[in-house]
Design a protein around this nucleic acid. Sequence first.
DNA 1: TGCCTGATGTTCT
DNA 2: GAACATCAGGCAC
Length: 203
Amino acid sequence: MKNPILLRGSKLVPVQAEQLAGPVEAAKYLVGSYLVRDFQGNRLIGKIVETEAYFEEDEASHSYRGKTPRTKVMFGLAGHAYVYFSYGVHWCMNITAGDAGYGAAVLIRALEPIAGLETMHKLRGGKAKNDVNLANGPGKLTQALAIDKTLYGHDLQLSPLQLLKDDSATPEQIVTTTRVGISKATDAPLRFYVKNSKYISKK
DNA sequence: TGCCTGATGTTCT
DNA sequence: GAACATCAGGCAC
């Protein structure tokens, strides 16, 4: 990779598709990873602190009813962006997981803002009263990182949106709970977040 | 602080 | 035509 991305002295390396082979493992693995967004000359970095796993056998998953024009990227290669419009108002970002042909993805629910906070506040339209509220929800983080349908299907090993991991960091302590904001399969323990993080979404 | 509601595009039934 | 992997503002307490 040209110009490796450095953060606090450690080098961030791209997340490989093999590390996203299973949706549940991928959801856990992605907690503590970094999203790096290059936007209009600014580099915005957020650390993933909360995820949810969705897959074909899962009633709450968009892929449950099979491949459609919207969900087709979920059935493609792992490590790509599945971006969809929710409630007519917000974009939500997923990272595809599992083998090609199997419809699975990991919803990114919250980020800890690391770099480019000023730009993130601007992108949020000044609605975030503090840094905690910048990206502590699926709709908020897409706003803060300027993620929309133009990034649908984007390969996350490439700029302007990359998925990276700091291999020298100690793994996060992860808490597992049921998912949020869904009406089906509400009992499945498929939500993962960093223990004691103040940046996770509410509820 | 916490509940309630309006906004509103896309997909699926 | 209804449901939806949401958010923010308004109002009551």
